[in-house]
Design a protein around this nucleic acid. Structure first.
Length: 507
RNA sequence: GGGCCUCUAGCUCAAUCGGCAGAGCAGCGGACUUUUAAUCCGCGGGUUCGGGGUUCGAUCCCCCGGGGGCCCA
């Protein structure tokens, strides 16, 4: 055995071993015994005529203690088990969270099958039962079994159902979290509803969904550190994309006038309660649109998603507070709001030295390579962002930090770009896209200088993208929004709760 | 990157000043034909995250490492 193999097996419990935790050992032994008795712990098929929800719906009116006369088969995971001698109660749970009680009695199934039920079934097992739908003496809708069968034997015990698992256990073993915590299942459904709503809204405005490369020889479209990988066949280094932007714009050049993509981006940065190294992104480009029209679209996307999930543009967050996403949203400018917060006039034309002084006053750390625009943004994040609770479009960002955006049509030194803030975090961004290939080339060259000066988030020159733009790109509005963050905005959950299987350090 | 907190049974958590490592649920054996986190009787279950140190003695104190969380940058 190699060292690697030894590593791989070290943590794996030996199914026949003596060093298993007691409860796993007992379950493994039961599995072996069931096989030895000629029964199947994992049958390919079990009888199931109704889902648990169907039974509940069909017999909602059944009176306490009554019998329905209907004979059916149900199956599900055993989440509660009680043995009262010649009668056993097992509560089955379906994937949708619906639970239904099964009663297995001496009269119903006979001595042998009752004894097997007690001996074979543990919490967590999948079991099927055949029998009449009845209501118990206490009014609990039940299936009074005349036969039962193991559907799938669980080898690991479930955690207690009455307390939530620790946050780490929930994230590392989401499959268990999903079994025992209804809210975990709910988030999965909520996310699906949001994605569906986004697509519906895009389609209602005649947008076309595309998929663009995730493996790119040149990463671009955003300021972020990429993941690197290698392609053996071409012997070239590749990057996992940090944004789909440059390819979606190529699509617009080609005449896909309204285009969107909902897919994963990868950024080789930290992971905390608002950042995940892989995250789902919504991007859209609208020919003959601009940052105003794309802002309207973004608001519609968010509000429709809230309606789809909550039935209202006022959503209830995880902490129980209400949050209003409805109506028109506040619009402020970056430099206007910064001036107000700083108590003095700051514009895109303010000298770097004055900004450095202002940064010192407010204890904002400054790097040598910071441009005036970068300085202004750092100040804005410190002085203004913490107060942006209600949905707010912040407009007109500095030119030197927005290399893919058109210069503002009237205000010097800024671009037609907005950032959307919700509860003080950045939910999305939108631009009047830069479509002049000559200016675009100048911006790329300037970015290359910034990169050389030490900003490893700066963009690289993308010659093929410039070639595409040189064929002519119509005036275009573009937007981007993090799907995970949209979920956070609507539900109030942390990012690791909105992602089904978030990245965690190996155990 | 820095600071603070945390890691104990399958799960959730206790353990006083450094002195036999515990509870609830889960599990095992027994009783019970209507239970709703059933009840009653009895019983097991631990690499206290890993490694080192101090000590007669370490879950506890010290050092190194790892996982998780919070705050700061």
């Amino acid at each position: 055995m190699t060292d690697q193999q030894a590593d791989a097996t070290r943590e794996l419990p030996d199914p026949n071993g003596e060093d298993l935790p007691e409860q796993m050992r007992i379950r493994s032994e039961k599995r072996a015994r069931i096989l030895a008795e000629g029964k199947a712990p994992y049958p390919i098929e079990v009888e199931r005529t109704h889902t648990l929800a169907q039974v509940r719906a069909d017999h909602a009116e059944l009176e306490t203690g009554a019998s329905s006369g209907e004979i059916i088969s149900v199956a599900g995971r055993v989440v509660r088990f009680r043995d009262a001698g010649k009668l056993c109660f097992a509560v089955l749970q379906d994937g949708d969270g619906t639970q239904l009680q099964v009663m297995v009695s001496k009269n119903g199934v006979g001595d042998e099958a009752l004894a097997a039920f007690k001996a074979d079934v543990d919490l967590g097992d999948f079991v099927s039962a055949h029998g009449e739908v009845i209501s118990s003496r206490r009014g609990e809708l039940s299936v009074m079994a005349d036969s039962w069968a193991m559907a799938s034997k669980a080898l690991r015990p479930l955690p207690v159902l009455h307390k939530e698992m620790s946050e780490e256990a929930r994230v590392r073993q989401r499959y268990v979290d999903l079994i025992v915590r209804p809210a975990a299942r709910e988030v999965v459904k909520t996310r699906a509803s949001v994605v569906r709503s986004l697509r519906d809204t895009f389609h209602s405005h005649d947008f076309t969904e595309v998929e663009t490369p995730m493996l790119q020889s040149l990463h671009g479209g955003a300021a972020a550190r990429p993941f690197q990988t290698h392609m053996n066949a071409f012997d070239i280094d590749l990057f996992l994309r940090i944004a789909p932007e440059l390819f979606l714009k190529r699509a617009v050049v080609g005449g896909i006038d309204r285009v969107f993509e909902i897919n994963r981006n990868f950024r080789n940065e930290g992971a905390d309660s608002t950042h995940s190294p892989e995250f789902a992104m919504i991007e859209a480009y609208q020919a003959y649109g601009n940052y105003n029209t794309i802002g309207d679209l973004t608001r519609e996307l968010v509000q429709n998603a809230a309606l789809a999930v909550a039935g209202s543009t006022t959503v209830v967050l995880a902490d129980g507070t209400e949050y209003d996403l409805g109506g028109e949203w506040r619009q402020i400018t970056m430099f206007g709001s910064l001036s107000e917060a700083a108590g003095r006039e700051v514009t895109a034309l303010t000298e770097r030295a004055e900004l450095v002084e202002l940064a010192a006053e407010h204890h904002v750390p400054v790097q040598d390579w910071y441009s005036p625009g970068k300085l202004a943004e750092e100040l804005f994040e410190e002085l203004v962002v913490p107060d942006l609770y209600a949905p707010t479009f912040v407009r007109d960002y500095p030119e030197d930090t927005s290399p893919l955006v058109s210069a503002h049509r009237t205000t010097p030194g800024v671009t037609e770009k907005w950032d959307l803030y919700v509860r003080s975090f950045e939910l999305g961004t939108g631009y009047s896209e830069l479509v002049d290939p000559v200016v675009q080339r100048e911006r790329f060259v300037a970015q290359a200088r910034v990169a050389a000066a030490g900003d490893d988030e700066a963009m690289r020159l993308d010659e093929d993208f410039l070639r595409a733009m040189e064929y002519g790109m119509p005036p275009t509005g573009g937007m981007g929004m993090g799907l995970d963050r949209l979920l956070m905005a609507i539900t109030g959950l942390g990012i690791r709760e909105t992602i089904l299987f978030p990245l965690v350090k190996p155990e």
